[in-house]
Amino acid sequence: MLNIKLKTWIDGQSWFGETVRAVTKKKELPSLDFNDLAFKLATAENISETLPAVLKSLQSLINDLFPPAQQAELIILFSNPSTSETFMHHGLHQAPAAKLMQSLHHLFTVGKAPESNDMMMVDGLTIAPSRLFDHENMTVWSLFLFRDAAPSAKQLKWKTSSIENTLYKGLQAWYHSESKLKKALESERAMYAAELHDSLAQVLGYLRLKSLKLDKLCQQDEFSSLKPITEDLASYTQCAYHQTRELITSSRLTMQSDNLSQGVINSIKEFEHQSAIVFELDNRLPLNMLSPQQSMQMLYIVRESLSNIVRHSHATHARVVLLLKTSSLIHIHIEDNGTGINPEAARSDSFGLQIMKERADRIGASLVINNRPEGGTRVDLSLDLEANE
C-alpha cells in the first residue's frame, strides 16, 4: 500500500489534493488532461464514437483509484423517458451482459429512476448512480458498477468528483451544441417542407386531377388513339405527386426516429391510413442497439418498402419483423401477399430500389429483395454491428 498524492486540475484550478490510498504495482497514476477530455466531448461530431474513447481513458484512472476489492466500472447512460429510450456507453474491453443492459434500461425509463448517489443492487451488482444533468428530453447518468465490495457514498464521491465534473462539462456543452444544431436543421427542414407543400405539391395535385379526368375522357372511342398517352400522363403525374408528398413527410421526420422501433411503428400507422392493407409487426429488437445514423438509414429503407407495398403490391396483408439474430446481427424482413416484383420491368426514371440499396451500402448493411414462393415480395435487410465498428 502506497500513499499517492493525486492532483487533478479543472480550468486551471486544483480540484482536490488529498492523499488517496491506492494499490499500485510501483507505477504512477495515469496522467490525464481533464480539460482535453472535456473538450473532446464538447466538440464531438458523433458522441457514440467519442464517448467510449474518453471513458476508456477514465477507466484506466478508475482502476488505480480503487483497490482490487472495490474495482469499479463506469457506464454513461442517456435516458429519454418520453420515448422509453436509453443509450449506454462504456470504455470497457468487454460489453456489460445483455441482461444487465436490459435491467438498467427498464430501471431508468420504465421504472422509477433512483435518486443520485443512492447505491442499489441490480443483477447482483452494486450500482452508484449520479445524475450528471437533466434536460427536457434527455437525462444523463454516470453509473459506477461494483462487482464485489463497494465504498461508502462519501468515499466514492471524494474519489470520482473530478471525473464526474469532466463528464458534466463536456457532455453539457455537447448537448447544448447539438440542441442548437438540431433546432436549426428542423427549422430548415420545416421551411423546405412548407415550400414544397405550398408550391410543387399543390401544382402536382392539380395536374393529377386534370390528367385523371383527361384519361377518363379519352376512354371514348373517338379519342382511343390518345389513350396510351393519357394513361402515361396520368400515371407519371400520380407518381410525381406521391413522391413529392413522401419528400414532405420525410423532411418532417423528427429525431425520435433515431429510435428505429418507434420510427417503424409510426410509419406503419401512417401507411395503414393510406390503404386497406392489414399490417402486422413483430418487434424483438432492443432499443439501444443502433447509432442515430444507422437507425435513420434503416428506417428510410423500411419506409420505402412500405410505400411500395401500398402503391404497387395490390396486397391485403403485410408483415414487418425486427429481430436481433445474434448479439450483434440485426435483421429486418418485410413481406406482403401481393403480386410480387419484376425488377426488369422497373421504369428507367424510378430510383426507389436503387436508393434503398445505396442507403444500405452507406451503413454497411446487406439488402436483398426477392419474390416470395407463396406470392408477393420479401425485403431482407441485415446489419452486423461488429463488422461495422
Rank of each mutant, 00 (worst) to 15 (best):
E115K: 15
N117K: 11
N117R: 12
M120T: 13
M120C: 13
M121P: 05
V122I: 13
D123C: 01
G124H: 06
G124K: 01
L125T: 00
L125G: 01
T126I: 08
I127T: 00
I127L: 06
A128I: 11
A128E: 12
P129E: 11
S130E: 15
S130R: 04
L132A: 02
F133Q: 01
F133D: 02
D134R: 04
D134T: 05
H135E: 14
E136R: 11
E136F: 09
N137M: 09
M138F: 11
M138E: 14
M138Y: 09
W141I: 00
L145H: 09
F146C: 08
S152F: 07
K154N: 10
K157G: 15
K157C: 13
W158M: 15
W158E: 15
K159G: 11
K159T: 10
T160K: 07
S161H: 15
S162N: 12
S162C: 14
I163A: 05
I163T: 02
I163H: 02
E164C: 03
E164K: 00
N165R: 03
N165M: 15
Y168C: 09
Y168H: 12
G170C: 05
A173K: 07
W174G: 02
Y175N: 11
H176N: 10
H176L: 12
S177N: 08
E178G: 06
K180S: 07
K183Q: 08
E186M: 07
S187V: 00
E188T: 07
R189Q: 09
